[in-house]
Amino acid sequence: MIAEQLPQYFVSGITAGSIYALIALGFCLIHNATRIVNFAQGEFVMLGALTTISFVSDLGFPIWLGAILSVFIVTAVGLLLEKGPIRHSKDASPLTLVMITVGASIAIQGSGMVIWGKDAHTLPPIGGYHYIRVLNASVIPQTIVIVAVVTVLLLLLYFFFHRTMVGKAIRAVSENSEGAALIGIPVRALVTASFGLSGAIGAIAGILVTPLTTMSYQSGLMLGLKGFAAAILGGFGSFPGAVFGGFLLGLMESFGAGFVSSTYKDAVAFLVLLAILFCRPQGLFGKVQVRRV
């Protein structure tokens, strides 16, 4: 009996996990450039989804066009967030900047409520509702699309950070921003770019998950929290870690629900998370932080 259900647990975990992984990636991008946690990341997800819905349902654009436009818009929001409040904050200590992102999150959520109202909205899934049967599991094509996009994004990010000058410069900034500035790297411009990029990834995440989860002005918050947990699990700042952490969190929830009890599924997932962090405080893929005195 359990062997029959196993494939579906796995699919369910992968579906949820791929969503968490995408959001965790956005967290890592900004963290790597600035060493701060951007609590408005969930709001980028919500904005991306809801602007696409506006383009598609209200203006009648084809979905790919709506998605591209919305990614650009959310990228702009990310850039504005950095160019405005983050850059012009008088006190640039990390805690202040984190509080600014919390404020931005509340502001974006509020504007979302005014623009799109209080109801949930949805998008048609890519590939429709032609469920694919694999073993005993039933898979919606959208899940495969999400997993594919996560993989491609991960490869692109790897390429970007290890093979291009800009990417390498961003990594240099995250290692030591003063040193990077000394050798002539335009630190501010790169920080701005990371905010834009993380806005774009957030938007892509939102557009991809909406057919599965539906989206309302306040959905970003919960998704952001799960993505944050996934990022921590993987070792905050590590891209493979973020993706792995996302999938692991999704699978733990699903198997926790399947084998233990759905009532305690979040408890099971977070117990495992705590246990991992207890043994490896830096997360699964995190580097050990060496603090010089």
Binding site: Q5, Y9, S12, L212, S219, L223, A257, S262, T263
Partner: peptide, 19 residues
């Protein structure tokens, strides 16, 4: 079976109930 209202996927619970 139970689920959280913000969960993205409930197939695990449903497949248990199906059986």
């Amino acid at each position: 079976e139970s689920f959280g209202v913000n969960d993205p996927d409930m197939t695990t619970q449903l497949v248990k109930l199906k059986n």
